[in-house]
Amino acid sequence: PAAAAPGSNPSHFMKGAIIQLATGELKRVEDLQTQDFVRSAEVSGGLKIDSSMVMDIRSSQQRPGLVSLHFTVGEQQSKVTIDVPPEHPFFVFGQGWSSCSPERTAQLYGLTCHLLQVGDMCVSITLQQQQ
């Protein structure tokens, strides 16, 4: 299955960055909560929140310096792999921002993260299926 790498613009994740929810509300990136994503998807029409479980974390074979994250996505349990820098934050349900290297995330973005681990359920989005 196809997978799009998360946004390449790191300023999204800089502490203090202003994020607009689908409801129009503005929040700082460090203040976002699980419900903000869920509610945004509900009102956005066309986007659906999926739970993506981290199945494996290892160094990328193809791209040194990156980390390969293996997910199973949604009800279909699709297997998706993406390569990201170790400092890239993911939003874990009920926990908040998490990365493979919270120290680097703090250095580069100023964003406080938990350590991303196998079994974590990350927020991801897909296109809403038309019934």
């Binding site: 299955p1 196809a2 997978a3 799009a4 790498a5 998360p6 946004g7 613009n9 300023s11 999204h12 994740f13 960055a17 202003i18 994020i19 607009q20 929810l21 689908a22 503005l26 990136v29 976002l32 903000d36 994503f37 945004s40 956005s44 986007l47 999926d50 993506s52 997910f71 199973t72 996505v73 949604g74 009800e75 279909q76 349990q77 699709s78 297997k79 998706v80 993406i82 993911f90 939003f91 990350c122 927020v123 991801s124 989005i125 897909t126 296109l127 299926q129």
Partner: peptide, 25 residues
């Protein structure tokens, strides 16, 4: 005079990965 600088605003969906779950793996 200091011109006001616009603060960038990012959409919520730019923060989370788009992972295609339409095809079972």
């Amino acid at each position: 005079n200091v011109e006001p600088r616009s603060v960038p605003v990012f959409p919520w969906h730019s923060l989370v990965p788009f992972l295609d779950s339409s095809q079972p793996g």
